[in-house]
Amino acid sequence: MPIKHHLHEPTLLAYATGNLPEAVNLVVAAHVSLCDECRALAETFDTVGGALLEETAAVGLEQDSLDRALARIETEAPAPRAPVSPGTLPAPVQAYVGGDLSAVKWRPVGMGVKQALLPTSDTASARLLLIPAGAAIPDHSHSGQEFTLVLQGAFADEEDRFARGDIEIADDKVHHQPVADIGEDCICLAVTDAPLKFSGWLPRMVQRFVGI
């Protein structure tokens, strides 16, 4: 199935220029891992960076600079390519989990939904969500931006359907209630630059318990 829901261009530009918080970088890297369209655009923005580097005013090196570099490469072994182990989780997500799905340490957050927080810097937060097949995830609204990347299964909200590789981008205007497809449990990487606000009483209680 081709990917239908992509990242916005300014997000890819902010990724290429290194202006995103770590957690947002993670969801961008994960989507780009699955989406050639966005990979081509990200590499295009890298090309702009290369062109700027070429034009950057050079700053003189220290006198022994080259000698030190030559000494360093004497002792530096070639770095092997990182092995790509295909799985449900793209490689950048696996790096935070310490493996594929089986390595995820899920914690229940109520109504069958489970989550696992990923250890990124606290300027934004990243979590894996598991929504049981056919279940609704609690009605919630957002403060700030939220990115939800589907890694397994699919979900649909009032407007659209999202399957593996699709990324939903919601801002604080959206108030939605996604429902997982009946076929299999839905696993998503959800990244937000502010805490989620659940509107039901049960999730709010859960929120207090698990600190989301």
Binding site: G18, D46, L53, E54, A91, P92
Partner: peptide
């Protein structure tokens, strides 16, 4: 120059923000 830009950018993030920079698979 493009390839070196990406390495320098990641090094900058590591250095100035003390953050890991996730890269695509």
């Amino acid at each position: 120059s493009t390839w070196l830009f990406t390495i320098a950018r990641n090094r900058r993030i590591d250095l100035l923000r003390r953050e890991n920079r996730p890269e695509p698979q």
